[in-house]
Design a binder for these strands. Structure first.
Lengths: 208, 208
DNA sequence: TTTCAAAAGTGACAAAAGTTACCGAACATC
DNA sequence: GATGTTCGGTAACTTTTGTCACTTTTGAAA
């Protein structure tokens, strides 16, 4: 167990890992489950040890907008900072691939900031990385048209799953980008004609 | 000076304020000046003591997208977190109303995180607030059409300047929202017809 | 094999946003 | 007061995106 944690979170000190193991609560979730809803109180900081999680921003009238993936070795940045003031979640998090999470209770998370330099650096680093990722998302929607946004989206999916065959329906992509299936179909067809992708049912092969 | 700081940053402890005063470098900027460019190295954490600053995300091909205001009593969240790892700036910051800034050198900023609980809480709080503001910006561009985005933009301007007469040209609004002047003129006219604003040259009176 | 549902293709149209081009009003300054 | 500049108004048009309606394809289950 300590070796496993050390592998996933190589920057953590021995003492921090011991503290985590002594206090951890591990939870398992399977694909499709929602682990955090918009407006819910955050009671834990979440470390991901297995699987992938998709993080969304939700609209009042039902829209979902995909922001970023969380993967093993990462943490939910928002849960770390909101945690301190007992804030409500501003995001919705859905399990993509079956996931295993370490739940760190708030007061501990706060205490460790002062006790463990490596935890402090991890938290600050997570926050910065996430902020930067969100800024890139802003770029894509503020400066780019739907065709480029789709390309950006597909590239991130490839990065996240580590493979070039994406198991995604046009409908799913449409809701992630907050547009309609028809628009995605149209744009994907054009991309296929340009030789950038190969389309099959429920699968998109990325040739870029 | 200590009283002034105490007023602007009421949460800061006496010791922290003393530390700030002992180490501060104050800089003044006038309207229109750019205090930070995209890609520049961040060497200081910035506290705002006077004036207002507009923070932008920049596009490769020259576009600017307005994200949020920084005002007296606030700090540049990104400069605080990027600072630690000697990162490049991801944003561009332009002075709106003449500003006075306290520049805190990086190493100090980092040291204070451990020494001063009130500094630690201020930094984390700034970061959370800014993240939440950016999420709202994402909402507006991901879920809303230009007319609603314009309303959202105007409301934030009113909040920032504290008055209902905005000194803004249509051109300026257009570039802040990364659209054209014509589109803004068109939408503002419609808003005027609905009785939401009153238009004059270089001024928009908000009636909402 | 038949049946059904989900996924994808597509044409036609509507609405929103971007572009071009030109005009006139307001303001500064010489 | 003449002149030039910035700002704003607006019509006409194009492109992009969203929507509707309907069909075909594909895979899974009965």
């Amino acid at each position: 167990m300590p070796e496993q944690l050390k592998k996933l979170f190589p920057s953590f000190s021995k003492e921090l890992i011991q503290d985590i193991i002594a206090n951890q609560v591990i939870k398992n979730f399977s694909s499709g489950e929602i682990i955090m809803r918009t407006g819910e109180y955050i009671k834990n900081t979440v470390l991901i040890t297995k699987g992938t999680i998709k993080v969304y921003r939700e609209d009042i009238d039902g829209g979902e907008f995909f922001m970023y993936y969380l993967q093993s070795g990462q943490a939910c940045a928002l849960s770390m900072v909101c945690a301190i003031n007992n804030e409500k979640s501003q995001i919705m998090a859905k399990v993509d691939e079956d996931a295993e999470l370490i739940m760190v209770p708030l007061p501990l998370m706060d205490k460790w900031m002062m006790q463990h330099r490596t935890w402090y650096e991890f938290v600050i680093g997570s926050y910065r990385n996430r902020f930067e990722e969100v800024l890139e998302v802003i770029d894509s929607i503020a400066f780019r048209a739907m065709d480029e946004r789709l390309e950006f989206y597909l590239k991130r999916q490839v990065e996240a799953c580590g493979c070039k065959e994406l198991k995604l329906s046009h409908q799913e992509i449409g809701s992630d980008l907050n547009t309609s299936r028809e628009v995605i179909s149209r744009l994907l067809k054009k991309m296929e004609q340009r030789g950038l992708v190969k389309l099959q049912r429920n699968q998109i092969e990325i040739l870029m």
